[in-house]
Design a protein around this nucleic acid. Structure first.
Lengths: 336, 336
DNA sequence: ATGTGGATTGGAAGCGTTTCCAATAGTAAA
DNA sequence: TTTACTATTGGAAACGCTTCCAATCCACAT
């Protein structure tokens, strides 16, 4: 059942049917109704491929996520899907692995699927203008604080929390509770990763209190996985058995850290407090409840989509939005 | 950058380039390499709309999931995406809410997007032939045990664990550890829900040991959410303070149950053991480690895709596959 | 040399839509 | 009744790709 069949059954031309179906103005009411009825009766469903081909674009928005399995992302993906659907677009999900180049992946996905826009979730958020030059659709980088090359700043949007700030706030919270020997559990402090920023916040909080930075308190897990975080915590404890608190830069790492503490014979929070950043729903149900800087996950997702759709439809230019996290206190931190 | 540009730059015909790009055999190695190089150098990305148009179908597979936010699904979705990608298809994700009709949602998605197949994740898994008649693409129902209307059984595939059996195994494990007063935490024991089946397994295990079923040990949360499970556990404890173990039908519910136990002054596992079904990765990092019947999440996802693709490509008819869960023991259960 | 046949290659017809442009019908003014 | 427009309509050219069919090529046997 194509537009052509309808045209024939109505005795009009293909062009006319197309016009009716696309709500073009220049069609007489009589013909319009006739065509509409015929289409209805024939259960006509437009062929998107053909339309996309001639318009050389689809109504798809690509979501490139590094690590779909990351529990922190699920709620954001949830919100993104909802918002994309509500805006009349289609979600095309594509996940990449740690060492894939998200820009390249996004570029080829966008090209081959003729997508209207892209959302990067968990990307590195640090793009050179030269890198993103191959992207010819608007995109927004979600979740991680974005570092800008001056020129690149003008060409895409971002929605994230202020990682450095929240790292600062988390550390500050521990300091205010009297902790001084605070271990940091981090994926990596280099590579312009998310960890680097949260770690910078940690450093800043210490500096503000006049506490010298002690490198032996910093432990890199190398990734966000639970086993890596567990091992890292073990190393940290072995080296610095005297810490009274751990700042894990992600809730999931904090879970692994808590287990490592327990396995090494330490109680949380009696022997060692734990604070994190992310705010998984489940963290509120741990015993003790994990203290964490909760990211506004749903809002991150919906804002990302809104920003992107605004760009796609030309309603607004690119924007860079920072959303605040919320301190969610639990029993995992105690005063000393 | 189209196939035509490459053809020109190589001095060959469009057909030849197409053949090279589609790995057709009848091309001389020399030409093939030349074309490949050119395509590579030009960052050629095929236009899917055009391809779909001529082949009159897309390469899309729809994933209809009820509750993307459910942590248990994330790993499965992850596996599904990977497998779909590897098979050369594209994932179109669509989530629905609790009370949406998944079949209707799937049907309209499949039509408008010209999808090749559908995967239902977390659907009710209990379809009447009359319901699924509107679906004109193959589909597979993943995750939940499927109950069949005789005719419907012939028309679609399913991949799941044997919910009743695993419910039985979990309960049986507790019984073997000496527990006799075992509370059940369940979303619902009616509505042909997943809970009903796991609960049936519980009943069977008790019956096998000659233990009469006690309705006061059964608590329905009404959903799988953490707050609901928490409240349900509180009610259960209030009514039956004498239970020595809880069988939660999902890991996430077990987390909430553990917290409720703690908040009601009970230690896990000293005062009350907990066992669940699902096997979230994170459950292995809880203190104590959650004992659970771990579903083979990755395998569920890949098998679902494989089954679907086999149907799509006509390699095999529909199948109904039950995958075994694996008992993962942790400290959350103790012998009495 | 002359076929012969298989291996390669090119040509061209669509796939279903949109849309520009030309054609026609209809209407009001002259 | 003509004229001059305007409102409608039809025709046809893309869009980029696959694929059937015909054409060309080349090595090798005759």
């Amino acid at each position: 059942m194509t537009i052509k069949d309808i045209a024939e059954s109505c005795g009009v031309s293909i062009s006319t049917v197309s016009r009716v179906l696309n709500n073009h103005p220049d069609v007489s009411p009589k013909v319009r109704q006739k065509v509409l009825d015929a289409a209805q009766k024939a259960h006509y469903v437009p062929n998107n491929s053909a339309r996309d081909l001639v318009k050389s674009r689809s109504e798809g928005i690509g979501l490139i996520v590094r690590g779909v399995g990351n529990p922190f992302f699920t709620q954001i993906i949830h919100a993104i899907e909802r918002a994309i659907d509500a805006a009349g677009y289609t979600l095309v999900l594509h996940q990449i692995s740690t060492d894939d180049d998200e820009i390249m992946a996004g570029a080829s996905l966008a090209r081959s699927k003729k997508l209207r826009g892209l959302i990067f979730l968990g990307g590195k958020g640090d793009y050179q203008s030269s890198d993103i030059a191959i992207l010819d659709v608007p995109f927004v980088c979600c979740t991680y604080t974005v570092r800008f090359t001056p020129l690149a700043r003008e060409s895409y949007s971002s929605v994230a929390i202020d990682d450095k700030m929240e790292g600062y706030r988390a550390t500050r919270f521990l300091l205010e509770k009297g902790h001084r020997k605070i271990g940091v559990l981090i994926n990596s402090k280099h590579d312009r990763s998310i960890g680097e920023l949260r770690y910078m916040g940690y450093c800043e909080a210490l500096a503000e209190m006049g506490i010298p930075l002690d490198e032996t308190l910093v432990e890199e897990a190398g990734s966000f996985t639970l086993p890596a975080a567990y091992e890292a915590t073990c190393r940290l404890l072995e080296r610095r058995g005297d810490i009274t608190a751990v700042f894990a830069i992600a809730d999931s790492m904090a879970v692994a850290a808590a287990k490592a503490l327990h396995d090494k014979g330490r109680c949380m929070p009696e022997d060692c407090s734990v604070i994190a950043i992310d705010g998984l729903e489940m963290s509120s149900y741990f015993v003790p409840v994990l203290t964490t800087m909760a990211q506004p996950q749903t809002e991150l997702g919906t804002t990302a989509v809104k920003t992107l759709v605004d760009m796609i439809e030309g309603r607004a230019g690119n924007r860079h939005i920072l959303l605040p996290a919320t301190l969610r206190t639990g029993g995992s931190v105690r005063s000393i």
